[in-house]
Design a protein around this nucleic acid. Structure first.
Lengths: 243, 243
DNA sequence: CTATTTTTCTCACTAAATGAGAACATACGA
DNA sequence: TCGTATGTTCTCATTTAGTGAGAAAAATAG
């Protein structure tokens, strides 16, 4: 084990499954001796990436709040979420959640979100959440905005791991570019539908999308049109804000 | 240089002053050769703690969003902020900001916040923000809930670095314990005032406070009383929720 | 296509991480 | 109060990794 990976292996444990770990449990999971682990954990605690929770176990520490805040306040794209999403969801005729998602490497992550008071949805579209790369309007709108070479590489890599109808996907992307938005139903959460538009800013290296998520049961043709209109106008506002 | 500090030195640069750094600037600031830095940065980029921004500079990466989200969803104390703060600010007669802050080591950090639409305040009371330990209602309410020994140690350590009237501070803490809340005016931001109550959960090792921040110009005696009432009832609600 | 900048690589050298076990610290119950 | 169990740090011989100057390669600009 070497370099940052040494620390990241420990931190990763806290992302998945349990949010609190005893040293003993970590030692079994990572197959490392306690003495080595205690050293790594102590360093992470000193730098606030972990914190001790009393009953001889550990959890993620306040450093993540501090760094995340810095990211939030310094990243203009995340800021645009804070500026435009609240007023966007207020204009919706039905309860919705709005999510701004961005490509990082080969993964799409939600970087800002807002929801109407009535929208008691899942936390699937919440800042910090990773999206499935080939499913849902969100990721498809990101893919649609990508340079062809990069898009194909991502699709090929991802398709190797899951079973996806690439022909259908390509058709959806074509449709998205043509009409400016895409509606998908039940692809991520069976009860929900997404209406998404691309936000591509090649100069900043940002490939992203804006998605409105609503309960399928709330949707009518008229409402779908309204949401499509909202998502396109606001995607445009965000593009202008970033330029 | 050794261990995690090697990486933390790099990351710290992004917290203060600039949010984007070129390798050249980092090399000068940290007094390290470029080859060493490139290695460290590459590791941090691979693990998404940094990301490249095209014009040969770097910024904080999406890993912080991911870890912060995990913290937010798994920490019951932060959750209690999400549950109680929105309804709390809605009950205020004037525009306010509500902040839930917690002691981590020798520092007080805001871990959750909410504000009324009309409150166009600073971001001084925002999740992830560190508070001055000896100024303001927020930190004083945290100190007031601390076991005496720990309180005295923190005050002594912090007072050595700034000039503080410890006698006055002690009097304020006494008053806070007696009446259940404390009002300070202009201690953190000259235009603002804070009304705070302690939230102490020794079983969880949580020493914290709830603060309402308002513009001093909006305050009357009647409103102060109302805010004091709100802050005490909600601090109590959060205590119960955590138990 | 060339010049310049950014990034990675190489390698001799230095320094740090590892892990087993002992030692220390702490909490708990008798 | 005293053991006892558990959690945490320490020690040290050994293995492994980090360092930095400069060369080389890649990417970018002119």
């Amino acid at each position: 084990m070497s370099g940052f990976e040494r620390y990241h292996r420990i931190l990763r444990c806290f992302l998945h499954s349990e949010s609190q770990w005893s040293v003993k449990a970590l030692a079994e999971t990572l197959d490392l001796p306690a003495s080595t682990l205690y050293r790594g954990i102590r360093e992470l605690v000193q730098h606030r990436f972990l914190e001790s929770v009393g009953d001889s176990s550990y959890r993620l520490g306040p450093a993540f709040l501090e760094f995340e805040r810095r990211l939030r306040e310094s990243d203009p794209f995340i800021q645009s979420g804070g500026i435009f999403l609240p007023s966007l969801v207020r204009q919706s005729p039905i309860p919705i959640c709005a999510a701004l998602c961005r490509l990082h490497g080969h993964e799409v992550m939600c970087v800002a979100d807002a929801r109407t008071q009535g929208f008691e949805g899942s936390t699937a579209y919440e800042r910090g959440r990773l999206m499935p790369i080939l499913y849902g309007a969100t990721s498809k709108a990101v893919l649609a905005g990508l340079p062809l070479r990069r898009r194909d590489k991502i699709i090929a890599d991802a398709a190797a791991q899951t079973t996806v109808d690439v022909v259908y996907l390509t058709a959806q992307l074509r449709q998205l570019k043509k009409q400016g938005f895409l509606i998908t139903r039940g692809e991520v959460d069976a009860r929900l539908a997404g209406v998404a538009a691309s936000i591509t800013l090649p100069n900043d290296g940002i490939y992203a999308s804006l998605t409105l998520i609503a309960h399928q049961s709330d949707l009518t043709h008229a409402i779908e049109s309204r949401l499509a209109e909202l998502v396109m106008t606001h995607a445009s506002l965000i593009r202008q804000f970033m330029a």
